[in-house]
Design a protein around this nucleic acid. Structure first.
Length: 503
RNA sequence: GAUUCUGUAGCUCAGCUGGUAGAGCACAUCCCUUUUAAGGAUGGGGUCCUGGGUUCGAGACCCAGCAGAAUCACCA
């Protein structure tokens, strides 16, 4: 980029950079700057009578400056927060040479630059905890004007709100919007909390392939790529289910993975092409056990993150206190539509859909039709955490048939705010049954269902060696984060959401 | 993929019925040793998303495109 293409403000900052160098100051010094405190630590603990923090060293980004001649106030921001700095010319320049204040601080530094400050903490006349600077060190020059967001009594002035700007330049969003940073801190805490829950029960975190020759474990359109050395197509995983079950076959009794999955489908406020799912599989358990486990897990995470089981999400108040409601899918459909679809065949179900005003097409089998009825007529009403149990067998090709009714499966989903949050099975471990279910999927695929599952021969081979009865659970981490941080879009809980490239 | 809305200074936004491009913050210059959204004064800064069209004249109107957001469809 030539000098001519730079904005006026960028040119001024580049000029200041050169002036710093001329003054013998390296604008990008290599040496460590040792700090001994953070902004928030001072603000939380400083008491004027205690004589604490009389020799502090702190580093951060300049976010505000008020120059009053030979004394100035600045605010610097570190990882934790902000604090005000008081700079007096004769304090940071004790000798005759006043360059550091008159030129370096006043002329060559800007909002956005990183500085290090050594000094003591005091309270100003207006009552603000402030660091009185004795030394000032330039740590890094900022060459672009940083948007200035101001706040007074909770009111934001000149906020950076443009969604495109925020997502594309997330680094700026994080600098100027502290609430955004908090969301991502919470996201990590959620994952920490889950991990702690699993580890404390002795389950093992594992890593399974992202590049898979057959994308298994879910019904979805995959991304495809090519491996040059092997000269084969590879798919980005859509789920890690089959690999984790192979590990149960291999003798691990409890395994889990935080899995970045990829689906080549539509994008909207609930869907990003890459997203995170936690899947866990525990041997010798069933879906009833897993329901208790899920309840306990969700309640714990809510408490760990927000200190309460109650959350506000949009206009709803949701309570994650145990126990959650438990209903079968067929009962729920009866409850919301007054239709008992128990034992109906495909033709009858199609008629029910017509009466209820649900669109159908020829590629839809029995399972898909029931799913449509549930998704349209029931799911949106389920705001409080609700387990929906016993899905039709056609909808769940990897799930064990119900112990009491072969038309159903031992499956539950946890619905919160009208959306699926968790999905769990008594895992199908009968290799003959599994093969038949895969063949059913193949028929659906031939009928035109482009989401039907592929047949994974290696998975069938593993099951033939024997898999103990196993309960499995998947949790949408992005959606869980959205709920616990009250965010309306998945893009607000993913640091760098997928965007069309610029220009 | 469909529909609607949006795109003007570094940021947030005005811009009338089509008639010389505006404000606040930021930036620059000068003054000021306890200010806080904010010290005071003065000043500079624009590919009005892009390309066509209508018009004497387009930031505004029309067409096409690009990018984003919301809603819907599919999916978690």
């Amino acid at each position: 980029m030539s000098q001519l293409e730079l904005s006026e403000q960028e040119q001024f900052r580049r000029k200041a950079l050169e002036e710093l160098r001329k003054a013998g100051i390296d604008p990008y010094p290599a040496a460590e700057f040792v700090t001994n405190v953070s902004t928030t630590e001072i603000k939380e603990n400083f008491k004027p009578e205690k004589k604490k923090y009389q020799d502090v060293s702190i580093a951060g980004r300049i976010m505000n400056r008020r120059i009053m001649g030979n004394a100035s106030f600045a605010e610097i921001q570190d990882d934790k927060g902000r604090i005000q700095i008081y700079l007096r010319r004769d304090d940071i320049c004790p000798g005759d040479d006043k360059t550091l204040y008159n030129h370096v601080f006043k002329k060559f530094l800007d909002i956005g630059d990183f500085i290090g400050v050594k000094g003591f903490v005091f309270i100003t006349q207006t009552g603000e905890i402030t660091i009185h600077a004795k030394e000032l060190t330039v740590l890094s020059k900022c060459l672009r004007p940083l948007p200035i967001v101001k706040e007074k009594d909770g009111k934001i002035y000149d906020g950076v709100t443009d969604a495109e700007f925020r997502y594309r330049q997330r680094y700026v969003d994080l600098i100027v919007n502290p609430k955004v940073k908090q969301v991502f801190v919470k996201r990590t805490r959620i994952i920490d909390s889950l991990r702690e829950f699993f580890n404390s029960r002795g389950y093992l975190e594992v890593e399974t392939p992202i590049l898979q020759p057959i994308p298994g474990g879910a019904a979805a359109r995959p991304f495809i790529t090519h491996h040059n050395a092997l000269d084969i197509p590879l798919y980005l995983r859509i789920a890690d289910e089959l690999y984790l079950k192979k590990l149960i076959v291999g003798g691990f009794d409890g395994v889990y993975e935080f899995s970045k999955d990829f689906r080549n489908e539509g994008m909207d406020r609930m869907h990003n092409p890459e997203f995170t799912v936690m899947e866990i599989y525990v041997a010798y358990k069933d879906y009833m056990w897993m329901m208790d486990f899920t309840e306990e897990m969700i309640e714990k995470v809510a408490l760990d993150i927000n200190g309460t089981t109650k959350i506000k999400y949009g206009n709803e108040e949701i309570d994650f206190k145990r126990p959650f409601a438990r209903k079968t899918m067929l009962d729920t459909i009866k409850e919301y539509t007054d239709v008992d679809i128990t034992g109906m065949d495909e033709k009858q179900l199609r008629e029910v859909c017509d009466t209820l005003g649900i669109e159908t097409d020829e590629t839809m089998g029995k399972g898909k039709l029931i799913e449509q009825i549930f998704d349209e007529k029931c799911e949106p009403h389920l705001i409080q955490p609700t387990f929906i149990m016993d899905y039709p067998v056609e909808m769940s090709p990897l799930c064990k048939k119900h112990r009491k009714d072969p038309e159903l499966t031992e499956r539950f989903e946890l619905i919160v705010n009208g959306k699926e949050l968790c999905n769990a099975y008594s895992e199908l471990n009968d290799p003959i049954d599994q093969k038949e279910r895969f063949l059913e999927q193949l028929k659906l695929s031939e009928k035109g269902d482009d989401e039907a599952m592929f047949i994974d021969q290696d998975f069938l081979r593993a099951l033939e060696y024997g898999m103990p009865p196993t309960a499995g659970l998947g949790v949408g981490i992005d959606r869980l984060t959205m709920l616990l941080t009250n965010q309306n879009s998945i893009r607000d809980v993913i640091l760098f959401p997928t965007m069309r490239p610029e220009k």
